[in-house]
Design a protein around this nucleic acid. Structure first.
Length: 633
DNA sequence: TTTAGGG
DNA sequence: CCCTAAA
């Protein structure tokens, strides 16, 4: 799963007048073919606001972003950096410091979570070197509204110009590193590699393996640390400061700014042996301060149904869904003016195929607005939220009609164009199911966003879905939109309904997103069958799959049927001595023990149903046979 | 509404 | 997973 990190750090020397900003771009590509972290170059205006960098800017500072030969800068470079800043009016001067020392002070606009030890430590190293102090202002890129062309900065880059004022705004959290566990092997380590404008600098492949598993940086030599640095950041460093390297690497691995100078053991991109709960508390703080807006947190490692762990996930899913829809699909025209000052010319990533597919589940076809009707779902899922998006046609300056949907972005109402997609699978005969249903629409947007996130992890995120008791909050800014939504939906429903004369049609346009059954679910299913009997799918679902709201009784039935089939195929195959892995090396087979149990249960219940109806076997729970009471499975 | 079974 | 008949 893509790691979504936001502005974890920047280095002043790296960017000079531009700050390297890791945008919160969500990358839902399941395979780490590209780095989810996108650096965005921004310019700092005189008033401290940020504006997205132009292409020229990017090209201009490309080498700054990648070359870190200048990790530990000589003092003389500091002045140069500052001069550069001054020339471009990028920073506000802060002439007086209380202590009279010169510090390059970084000021976080968005969060109070600044001034960490890391930053301070780094800054302290600059105390004697920086003068006069400057104020760096770092804000999230989406708050910049306009693009200023870079002008005439003939900044000669100093080889050692790195007074690295490393700072982490950590709009995201170190939990982002958790996600990396899911696909550690695919985790892109070259954070800048994906941005097409700044990629291609690193030609040699770093040894990523050094970062796998448990990494005790203390045990590494300087050279190894440098290699780890390369693997982490995708660039070389000549720094021989062990402590600095360790901290830097740990920070990069864990995406956390809060890194001890020593004693760090990084395991699976997470600091081990430290108070990891701080992550949670940090997140909580950000939640209180509304900072979560840019964070996306997933705990792929949480197999269980820990409600405590699902809390944040659920919360962040909501945010993630918002952010997902923030992505521009194509055609900047319709929303360019609507984005307002805060969100803007931010370079957008092409939506992934998955995203397009999911998004188009609520799309229009041929200007005929179809609203996906929620598939049959447990009732508690339907109370979540109304659809945040409203089909909406908007014309650009050329008069072209773009099907768009209304969305909120950073509190602003925007129209996001739909993306067409042919329905996968067999075509649906009819799509009107809401005709006789409530006008309320399921929060498909959120669902799809979450699904995109979770799809990769299988059931590792299942517990996210459970938690229907966590109401998906409808942000206050949605008020006006909601009104439009309900009305528009109603009208559209009426139109479509009248257009198609068939009154009684079921199902919607959408197909339920495929969720691979996990071992955990299979076990639950088997247990449920053992307890209630095959056929009592409804009961099994209610009692054993309360946490898996997306599994319907029909799903259970289908899965059980498939399990039965599996017992007739996989089990004998294994006994034949044929390597079962050959059958499908990519898919983890269901453990034979479970299959055997399925087989036993099936046979048992077949007997129970085949013979005299209510046969109770000794030692067997009577409930086991209830399912077979009259019929047979 | 649930279950069973075909697709 | 979808769809539908039947209960």
């Amino acid at each position: 799963m893509a790691n979504v990190r936001v502005l974890s750090s920047y280095t002043v020397d790296d960017s000079h007048d531009t700050l390297v900003n890791k945008s919160e771009e969500n990358d839902f590509e399941k395979k780490g073919t590209s780095d989810p972290v996108v650096y965005q170059l921004v310019r700092v205006e005189g008033d401290g606001t940020l504006v997205p960098a132009t292409e020229d800017d990017v090209l201009k500072f490309e080498h700054f972003l990648h070359n870190e030969k200048d990790d530990l800068p000589p003092i003389e470079d500091v002045g140069h950096v500052e001069e550069f800043f001054n020339n471009d009016c990028m920073l506000l001067k802060k002439p007086d410091l209380e202590d009279g020392s010169s510090k390059l002070e970084t000021v976080e606009v968005h969060t109070q979570k600044l001034g960490t030890d890391l930053e301070e430590n780094r800054l302290q190293s600059l105390d004697d070197s920086l003068s006069p102090p400057s104020e760096c202002r770092v804000i999230h890129s989406q708050h910049s509204d306009k693009l200023l062309p870079e002008q005439g900065d003939n900044v000669t880059r100093q080889d050692n110009a790195s007074t690295e004022t490393t700072k982490s705004t950590v709009l995201n959290d170190s939990c982002g590193a958790e996600k990396d566990k899911a696909d550690a092997c695919s985790r892109p380590v070259c954070d800048t590699s994906t941005d097409p404008s700044v990629s291609g600098v690193n030609s040699s492949m770093p040894d990523f393996s050094i970062l796998r598993g448990e990494v005790c940086l203390d045990d590494l030599t300087i050279r190894e640390l440098q290699e780890a640095f390369i693997a982490t950041f995708g660039r070389q460093t000549t720094v021989k400061d062990k402590i600095w390297l360790k901290r830097r690497i740990t920070m990069g691995l864990t995406n956390s700014y809060d890194v001890p100078s020593s004693g760090c053991v990084v395991k699976d991109y997470k600091i081990v042996g430290r108070d990891t709960k701080k992550d949670i508390s940090d997140m909580d703080e950000r939640a209180k301060t509304g900072l979560r807006a840019t964070s996306l947190v997933i705990y792929p490692g949480n197999e269980g149904d820990s409600p405590s762990s699902s809390y944040y996930q659920s919360e962040d899913q909501q945010d993630s869904s918002k952010r997902v829809k923030r992505v521009q699909i194509h055609n900047d025209e319709p929303q360019g003016n609507l984005l307002g000052e805060q969100c803007t010319n931010k370079r957008t990533r092409k939506p992934t195929k998955r995203y397009i597919e999911e998004l188009s589940d609520i799309e229009t076809h041929d200007s005929t607005v179809k609203i996906s009707s929620p598939a049959k779902r447990p009732a508690h899922d339907e109370v979540l939220m109304k659809l945040r998006v409203t089909p909406f046609n908007e014309a650009d300056s050329l008069g072209t009609i773009y099907p768009t949907r209304k969305d909120t972005l950073g509190g602003f109402s925007v129209h996001v164009p739909y993306v067409s997609r042919m329905r996968r699978g067999r075509p649906r005969k009819d799509f009107i199911s809401f005709a006789d249903k409530e006008p309320s629409v399921e929060p498909k947007g959120i669902q799809t966003a979450v699904e995109m996130i979770l799809a990769k992890d299988g059931d590792k995120g299942n517990h996210l879905w459970k938690a229907p008791e966590v109401p998906l909050k409808v942000s206050s800014e949605k008020g006006h939109i909601e009104a439009v939504d309900s009305k528009g939906v109603r009208n559209l429903q009426a139109k479509v309904y009248s257009a198609v004369a068939k009154p009684k049609i079921k199902r919607g346009l959408t197909r339920k997103h495929h969720r691979a059954w996990t071992l955990c679910e299979v076990v639950k299913l088997v247990d449920g069958v053992a307890r209630f009997g095959a056929g009592k799918w409804s009961e099994i679902r209610k009692l054993s799959f309360a946490s898996y709201s997306y599994r319907t009784s029909v799903d259970l039935k289908d899965k059980w049927r498939n399990l039965i089939r599996a017992t007739k195929t996989q089990l004998p195959a294994q006994k034949d001595g044929a390597c079962p892995r050959k059958i499908n090396p990519c898919i983890i087979p269901i453990p034979p023990s479970i299959l055997l149990r399925v087989k036993e249960l099936n046979e048992l219940q077949l007997q129970g149903g085949g013979f005299t109806a209510p046969v109770k076997f000794s030692g067997q729970d009577s409930k086991v046979l209830q399912g077979k009471g009259s019929g047979f499975l």
